[in-house]
Write a protein that binds this DNA or RNA. Sequence first.
RNA 1: GGCGCCGUACCCAAGUGGCUAAGGGAGAGGUCUGCAAAACCUUUAUGCAGCGGUUCGAAUCCGCUCGGCGCCUCCA
Length: 488
Amino acid sequence: MAAGANFKGIHVTNDLTRAKEPFEPADAEKVTMYVCGVTVYDECHIGHARAYISFDVIRRYLEFKGYGVYHIQNFTDVDDKIIRRSNELGIPFSELAEWNEKNYFKVMDALNIKRASVYPRATEYIGKMVELISGLMEKGHAYQSGGDVFFDALSFGAYGILSNKNLREDRFGSDEAPDGKKHPADFALWKSAKPGEPSWDSPWGKGRPGWHIECSTMAVNLAGATLDIHGGGYDLVFPHHENEIAQSECYTGKKFVRYWLHNGFVEMDKEKMSKSLGNVIAVSEILEKHGPDALRLFFLSAHYKMPVSYSDERVAESEKALDRFDVFFSKIEDIARRTRGTGARDSARELKAKIISARDNFIAAMDDDFNTPQAIAEIFSLIKNCNSWIAGAESEAEEITADEAGVLREAAAVVRELGNVLGLFGAAGRHEEDDTAVDDLVELLIRVRKIARDKKDWAVSDMIRDELAALGFTIEDGQSGTTWRKRK
RNA sequence: GGCGCCGUACCCAAGUGGCUAAGGGAGAGGUCUGCAAAACCUUUAUGCAGCGGUUCGAAUCCGCUCGGCGCCUCCA
């Protein structure tokens, strides 16, 4: 393929063309990626977690491949739901928005989701939105109806290109005579203010923006007419993203988005999870039961475009799978501490080759539309190969040498590196920066326990193990000494 | 009515034209071990919803059938 300079091997499934295409951003130094953010009227639920974990991994991988990423994610801080909810609570809408915005960061930080480059708020762009709407009116793509302004869907020939709809053949909405619209597919750019609602001045009187206009406005103002990537959940394809294309392209006259990427839904009992069905689970609720990495691994075990059925049992399985990493890391640290001699047997050299190919395979999997399940499989395979080598080496007479331990550490470094690309091992409190005083005390207890074990005093030995387990430390007696690790 | 997705082992889930159908969880047997745990080895789909077709060759392409789901209305 005649690939351009900005192609680095990644292929993505573009929802605009419904085909897998080579990913070639306009500028490798600055890939522009706009991900639809939340409407801050309620807590974050697991659907949000899935969406933002998906795009977090996409962003991390782009950066891993050497792209600079300018990541825009908005906050919708004024809309019907926010107004209704704040009225119910008897607080200003801005206060509700602010509170939920804080909750958003708290939850997403806990999930180790990288912060976007900018977080524009709808209310900060009202003036720019008015500008854009005025531009659309001048070009004949919008019309006023009372105090409302609507986008004229029929005026945009490409309307329906993303969601594969046809203005003449498809149904749009249920009402035949929608209030003031010329065509049912027309949508509000500006809504006139009703009593008691927050409002802003405009050429069409006091009012507030429609839902879709904010994303177009922010994208165009922050990133320019054309975005490389625009992301969000599949539920946004229609009408939200379809309408964004219409507004933006009519305003700028340029292609709005080169690659549209959408993540699949989280389902509950084979049913879409949604507010209207009342089957949503808050992220904070999950995090009380499972670690952030468990939830992340659970989601990444399926391709980002596929629907996923949420289940506590499945997340618990991911949590167990995660143990393999912990065991692997601590085992290798252990081996590295007690090596003997130098040099490496042939099998260790073969292992080294496997490390390299595992890394290559991981990259090949991620290059293919961010195939995280395949990528994860490659990491587990590598761990299995290492464990297998260790078991074999330990059964032999010779001790593991410093050079061989070096190969194992390389493997551990690759596992960490690739795990980080997926956003794993990054949540607060894992590994590394632990309290050394606590570590020393555990080591001390293990030495005491060894004395008891040497005397075959199993009662004392088991008591220490049980008590430490109760405190969250797992003690394991291996062939060559005792190892320990902290749970979670 | 229009548009679209999915059906791979006990469960989850990659693979979408050609080597032994990844990986995780679970189960069974074994090695190691004071016990436990971990790890390792072996094992669990001659088979990819069903039926036809294309092909030297299909889980993978085409058609039909059955089953599950989504969007067309606010939603990640």
